[in-house]
Amino acid sequence: MASDGVVVEIGKVTGSVGTTVEIPVYFRGVPSKGIANCDFVFRYDPNVLEIIGIDPGDIIVDPNPTKSFDTAIYPDRKIIVFLFAEDSGTGAYAITKDGVFAKIRATVKSSAPGYITFDEVGGFADNDLVEQKVSFIDGGVNVGNATPTKGATPTNTATPTK
Rank of each mutant, 00 (worst) to 15 (best):
D58P: 05
A158Y: 13
T90A: 09
D138W: 06
K67S: 10
F82L: 03
Y115L: 08
K133D: 03
A152M: 03
F69T: 09
I10Y: 04
T157N: 13
K97Q: 08
I116L: 05
V13E: 06
L83G: 01
D55E: 12
T149Y: 09
P24N: 10
D39N: 00
V141C: 10
T20Y: 11
I60P: 11
G11Y: 04
F69M: 03
P113M: 02
I54R: 12
I116S: 09
L83I: 00
E9F: 02
G114Q: 05
T149E: 11
T20M: 07
G53D: 06
T159H: 13
V6S: 03
D4I: 14
K150A: 11
D39P: 00
T96E: 13
G123A: 10
I23Y: 07
V100I: 10
G15L: 07
N64H: 06
V21P: 07
S68H: 15
D87A: 15
D138E: 05
D45M: 08
D98M: 07
V7D: 08
N145G: 07
S110R: 13
S135D: 07
V61N: 15
G18M: 08
T107K: 09
V141S: 14
T157Q: 14
P31C: 00
G140C: 09
D98W: 04
V100Q: 09
P56I: 05
D45E: 08
L129C: 02
I54H: 03
R28L: 11
P113T: 03
G5S: 14
A125M: 01
T159K: 13
Y115P: 08
P31N: 05
Y115A: 12
D4C: 02
V41G: 00
N145M: 07
G18K: 07
N145T: 11
G11E: 09
T161L: 08
V61H: 13
F84A: 02
K33T: 03
G57A: 12
G144D: 08
V130S: 12
D62N: 13
F69G: 04
V21Q: 05
P65V: 09
D58H: 13
Y74N: 00
A146V: 13
I95W: 01
Y74S: 00
A92Y: 13
V130T: 07
D87K: 07
I95Q: 08
Q132D: 01
N47I: 04
F40L: 02
A94M: 08
